[in-house]
């Protein structure tokens, strides 16, 4: 069994892709850079499940952290505020 592609602390970028379907990656983080906060494990792929398919192969789900300033540009100056989003492996690339 292959291990997860990324480990906690690694920098990742969310793919800036746009295509139709039951996509669970919110638009506002596409193309943004963050880090792997936690590896949640492997889950059935919702992009397949939503259409009555088997959801296989399973996809690794990560908790990805972002600095709010990285996501929005304009954000409270000097703020340490963060945003965390659950993102499946195939939406991430090394940064």
């Amino acid at each position: 069994m292959e291990g997860p592609r990324f480990k906690p602390g690694e920098r990742v970028r969310v793919r800036a892709e746009d295509r139709p379907g039951h996509i669970r990656t919110p638009f506002y983080v596409r193309g943004k850079t963050g880090w792997i906060e936690r590896v949640y494990g492997d889950f059935l792929n919702p992009e397949s499940l939503a259409y009555g398919k088997d959801g296989l192969p399973e996809k690794t789900l990560y908790l990805v952290g972002f600095d709010q300033k990285e996501v929005w540009g304009q954000y409270l100056a000097g703020s340490q505020d963060k945003l965390f989003v659950d993102i499946y492996d195939h939406w991430l690339e090394p940064a």
Partner: peptide, 12 residues
């Protein structure tokens, strides 16, 4: 105070 927003979009 640091605010951490969690967008729960998947299985968690």
């Amino acid at each position: 105070v640091e605010i951490r927003v969690h967008d729960s979009t998947a299985d968690m």
